[in-house]
């Protein structure tokens, strides 16, 4: 299943691009619709992948809790300009639990927090960007297995700008004309200040909270892993030995009525 999912995704994207280029003159499939379409298709494919993966109720509720905590952190810091705790948390979740969980935590956090901060055309883009941040952390871990604290901090820092970049693609394609590299740079320049705050706050949160949060998440991860191990049988002979070890034996009174 997973094998043909990625090719199918790229096929659709190429199809969309081809369609917009060939018919560009007549029907005018605008770039904004095209960009939104590609992001939409990407989100659908990633969710589809999640649907088909073997996920236990434990993982579902852990993802939901992490998403809700991130959303809560975002809403409670909403008054501060772009001091964004979500990115940090999502990256750490992806780092500990893997790409799929990371993506789901990120996109859930975006969707859930917007129920309280206001849904908007930005919602799918945020779901996409944060989802990607979470997933990328897992790949980053696989690529750089022994990354130290500062390397990870750098990764957090980079995502501050990367996130801004993805969100800028939305503003740029939907509302700016002409779509040139100058206009993209200009769009980016206006958000540079916010992105820098975002990047710095990521590093800040990571350095302050990172150790503690990773420890907490690892604790949960271990609990989940341990419960997944195949159930072992207690050999019958063992039982007898245990009875002896008991300090109080109630064997004389033990028993069923009737």
């Amino acid at each position: 299943m997973a094998k043909w999912k990625a090719p199918l995704f790229f096929l659709i994207v190429i199809g969309l691009l081809a369609f917009s280029i060939t018919t560009g003159k007549q029907v005018k499939l605008s770039w904004s619709l095209l960009a939104a379409g590609i992001v939409g298709v990407a989100i659908i494919f990633l969710y589809w992948d999640f649907e088909q993966s073997p996920v236990s109720p434990r993982e579902i509720s852990v993802i939901a809790v992490l998403g809700a905590v991130a959303a809560l952190a975002r809403v409670s810091l909403a008054a501060l300009p772009n001091i964004q705790p979500v990115t940090f948390l999502v990256i750490v979740s992806g780092y500990v639990f893997g790409a799929r969980t990371g993506f789901m935590v990120g996109s859930t956090a975006a969707l859930a927090s917007n129920f309280f901060l206001g849904q908007g055309p930005w919602t799918p883009w945020q779901m996409f960007a944060w989802g990607l941040a979470g997933a990328s952390a897992a790949y980053f871990r696989a690529a750089v297995p022994n990354a130290g604290k500062w390397v990870l901090a750098l990764f957090q820092f980079a995502w501050g700008y990367l996130f801004g970049c993805i969100m800028n693609v939305w503003t740029w394609t939907a509302f700016i004309y002409p779509l040139s590299w100058q206009s993209f740079l200009a769009t980016w320049a206006t958000s540079l200040w916010f992105d820098s705050l975002h990047a710095l706050s990521n590093v800040f949160f990571y350095l302050i909270f990172g150790g503690g949060v990773i420890k907490i998440l690892n604790r949960v991860k271990k609990k989940i892993e341990v419960s997944r191990l195949p159930v072992q049988d207690v050999p019958a002979s063992n039982n007898h030995k245990l009875l002896l070890y008991k300090t109080i034996t109630y064997s004389s009174i033990k028993g069923l009525p009737r």
């Binding site: 649907e51 996920v55 579902i60 993802i63 809560l72 789901m104 956090a109």
Partner: peptide, 24 residues
């Protein structure tokens, strides 16, 4: 029906939100 797990994740997260706020 098409996305039962994803929908559950989002519903659960939305439901938890006010609860977590009170806990906080």
């Amino acid at each position: 029906t098409v996305a039962r797990k994803s929908v559950l994740v989002v519903t659960l997260a939305t439901r938890l939100f006010p609860l977590l706020l009170a806990t906080l």
